[in-house]
Design a binder for these strands. Structure first.
Length: 589
DNA sequence: GCCGTTTTCGGCCCGACTGTTTTCAGTCG
């Protein structure tokens, strides 16, 4: 049972309790605990082996602590097993249909005996839903449509894909007459790796024309809701988008509220209540229960709102409802890394392996991005599917890179590297003598994904112990929305990386974002150095660092934590020091 | 189920919109 397995059990318990009509606050306790575990690093989690260790953790009380202990010890939880057996499995799936929540699903089950989606579809077709009290013809119609488009509706979208759509629409909104401000909010603004739907907050005095423009965008397949201040649509892609229009003076509140996360908002509101104010998306007002008459402060920006609650400004990426409020109460938060801090990137491919741009094209694109340097790390020979280089081809590429750097008038310095396969036994695809001819080495797993956790962990740790290895590529091999990570003990991997002075990359391919942001805060505090690597296979791919920076910010990383924020001379010194150490280690053998 | 510079019991964040209802429950974020 891993941390995430336990989070998953709690999440499912919450859903099942909800379906049974349990106390909603109990439901929330399970769901918040699931969020808490998901965001907790493996190291922190590991420090809470027994129920007693959870005493100081807010959100996990005695009952949940003993359930965690039981799950860790036995891999099972009797409470969960019994609960699961008491609710038909198909009911959980029915919750995915828009407009169906726990109460309605329960009513369908109790009054019509429906236990799954197939039964629900038949009941709709027979007209049995519309005659049910509390339901009607429209609900029946919506359910049927929801079943048919369930997959598209339930799908999440990569941050990168969603951002491209959102930026285009936000720009369009800003061009509408009467619009003072327009910003995307939601999980997109928080920089989450995948996005369920888009939220747009607009400041305008007259909502109607803005909603008219929004609801008639060419990609809108369906307008799913429209009121006085809010309009919801679904695009052809299945992506849903909400537009909310507020008066200009309330913009900061609405932007903050709809940026979330839900848990962050709950904590902010509790904090407001402690000061005698009620906080909503519309503003601050005296709380009903407050008799102190504390004046409500003026708020024009999110920074003002945080200040009113005694907090330093919290960047959107950190608003996950974890410990950001405590940190912002203690003082200013660290200055997180920004796109403009990057001076180059490592782990990039060319046409020599599976990239689509030549060495020169990649270098020129790096120059256009304003970078000082670019690292080339094409695949090694074991990745034959990617046309990996053997030692001879690599040697030719190295000499091409050296002569590029020797020519005058070049603004971008190229580093010669490789993305060297970590073979199934943990050895590397190139001999040390070959690796010694390079500036740096990215070591990555590209095969044998099905190894068990211990084998995979020992394999990667062995690679990290090779002194020629500069950094570890995509630490878990996950492909968001496509492939689960391979089984690996990240605590041991991070420990080994720190112990051996190896960097772990934050692979900025929008499908990867690996190592996950949830691990970085703790790992960086313990001394792990990061490199934000685009893993570019084209000139356009270099710009993926943008999503990598988002993820790095979610992991509380500052420029000091990221190698490729350093000037060329410092990067050269870092690589040279690594090589010198490796050379000495080789001489001792 | 969690939590406590008012509380170990009694609270627990807040509002828009929809569809079904004649005043509101459920869903959603």
């Amino acid at each position: 049972m891993t941390k995430n397995d336990i989070a998953n059990v709690f999440e499912r318990i919450g859903t099942l309790l909800d379906l049974k009509g349990e106390n909603p606050f109990k439901v929330r306790a399970y769901q918040s605990a699931a969020r808490l575990l998901e965001t907790m690093s493996e190291e922190e989690f590991g420090a809470h082996a027994t129920a007693a260790d959870w005493g100081a953790v807010k959100g996990v009380g005695d009952a949940l602590a003993s359930k965690i202990e039981q799950l860790l010890a036995t891999g099972k939880l009797e409470f969960f097993e019994k609960l699961r057996a008491s609710v038909p499995a198909g009911l959980v799936e029915m919750l995915e249909i828009p407009g169906l929540g726990p109460k309605k699903v329960r009513a369908l089950n109790e009054r019509l005996g429906i236990t799954d989606i197939d039964g629900l579809r038949k009941a709709c077709q027979d007209g049995r839903i519309e005659s049910l009290e509390g339901f009607g013809a429209k609900t029946q119609e919506k359910i049927l449509a929801g079943i048919d488009r369930r997959e598209a509706y339930a799908k999440r979208h990569l941050w990168w894909d969603a951002a491209l759509v959102a930026e285009r629409i936000a720009a369009g909104l800003r061009n509408q007459p009467g619009v003072k401000r327009a910003e995307p909010a939601g999980s997109l603004r928080r920089g989450l790796e995948t996005v369920g739907d888009l939220d747009f907050i607009v400041a305008a005095a007259n909502p109607e024309p803005v909603m008219d423009w929004f609801s008639t965008l060419p990609e809108v397949a369906e307008v799913t809701g429209r009121g006085g201040t809010k309009c919801s649509v679904r695009f052809d892609s299945g992506l849903q988008a909400d537009l909310r229009i507020v008066p200009e003076e309330g913009f900061a509140f609405a932007l903050h509220h709809f940026t979330g996360s839900k848990q962050h908002n709950i904590l902010m509101r509790q904090r407001a209540l402690e000061r005698g104010w009620s906080l909503s998306e519309w503003g601050l007002s005296p709380a009903a229960s407050d008799s102190s008459g504390a004046p409500v402060p003026r708020v024009d920006s999110e920074a003002d709102l945080f200040a009113a609650l005694g907090l330093a400004p919290i960047p959107p990426e950190l608003r996950e409802g974890m410990d950001e409020l405590e940190a912002a109460q203690r003082g200013p938060l660290p200055r997180l890394v920004e796109l403009a801090d990057l001076r180059g990137a490592f782990h990039n491919h060319t046409t020599e392996s599976d990239g689509s741009a030549s060495l020169a094209e990649m270098a020129e694109e790096a120059g256009r991005l304003g970078w000082e340097y670019l690292g080339i790390a094409d695949h090694s020979k074991a990745s034959f599917q990617a046309h990996g280089l053997d030692a001879a081809r690599l040697a030719r590429q190295v000499s091409a890179i050296r002569s590029w750097n020797a020519r005058s008038g070049r603004h971008v310095h190229l580093f010669a590297g490789t993305e060297c396969d970590i073979l199934p036994d943990g050895s590397l695809d190139f001999d040390d003598e070959v690796l010694a001819t390079l500036d740096y080495v990215v070591a990555s797993v590209h095969s044998g994904f099905t190894q068990d956790e211990d084998t995979m962990t020992r394999r990667i740790v062995r690679a990290l112990e090779n002194p020629w290895v500069t950094m570890l590529g995509h630490a878990t091999g996950r492909l968001l929305l496509r492939r689960e990570p391979y089984a690996v003990n990240l605590v041991r991997v991070v420990d080994a990386a720190i112990a051996n002075g190896v960097i772990i990359e934050l692979n900025a391919d929008p499908h990867r974002l690996d190592l996950d942001w949830r691990h970085w805060h703790r790992a960086a505090e313990r001394g792990l150095l990061c490199s934000i690597n685009p893993d570019a296979h084209s000139t356009a791919g270099l710009s993926h660092v943008r999503t990598g920076v988002r993820a790095a910010r979610k992991g509380w990383l500052t420029p000091a934590h990221v190698l490729n924020t350093r000037p060329l001379a410092e990067v050269e010194a870092h690589f040279a020091a690594r090589r010198a150490r490796a050379g000495k280690a080789a001489a001792r053998l």
